[in-house]
Amino acid sequence: MPGVLALLPEYAGLEDPVADIRAACLDAVGWLGTEVTVIAGPQGRRVADHLLRTTTRTAAHPSYLVVGNGSAKRVDTSPGYVDERAIPFDDDLGSRLRAGAFSGIDADLARELWADTEAIAQLDGVVPAGCACSVDYEGDPYGVRYWVARWEW
C-alpha cells in the first residue's frame, strides 16, 4: 500500500480526499493476520501503524505489510512535476508487483522519480517468485502512482 500521509488522522480534513484509497487499504490491512511485520520507511511506518491500529485482524497466518509507491513525477499536476521516465518506470513496477518479481528495481532511478520502492524491493526473498497477486487499487489521483496489492502463499 502507498504511504499517503493524508491517511493519517493528524492530517484529516472535514472531507477525505483519499476515501477510496483508504477503503482499499483498510480492507487489505484487515485481511492480514494478527502478527504483522511492517516493512516501510519512517513515514510509511506511521501510516502502516495507524491502519493497523484502526483494523481488527483475526487471521492466524504471519503477515507482512509493505509500504511503497510509484513515481511522483508522472504528470504536470504531480508533486515533482513531469519526468518522462516516470510512466514507463511505473508501468514496469506495476508489472513486477503483479508477477511477484521484486529483484532488479532500479533504486537510483526510483529516487530521481520520487518513487518509494525500498520496502517493495525487500519483498525479494520474502514473497515466493511468481506468487499470484491481486490488485485491489491502482491509480494516480494526485499524480503519484499507488497500488494496493495482496500476495498470498
Binding site: 484529516a12 480534513g13 472535514l14 480526499p17 483519499v18 489521483p141
Partner: peptide
C-alpha cells in the same frame, strides 16, 4: 479548532 475542508497538498 476546525480542520481544513479537504487537505491533500504535500500529503499525496
Amino acid at each position: 479548532r476546525r480542520p481544513p475542508l479537504r487537505a491533500i497538498r504535500g500529503l499525496a
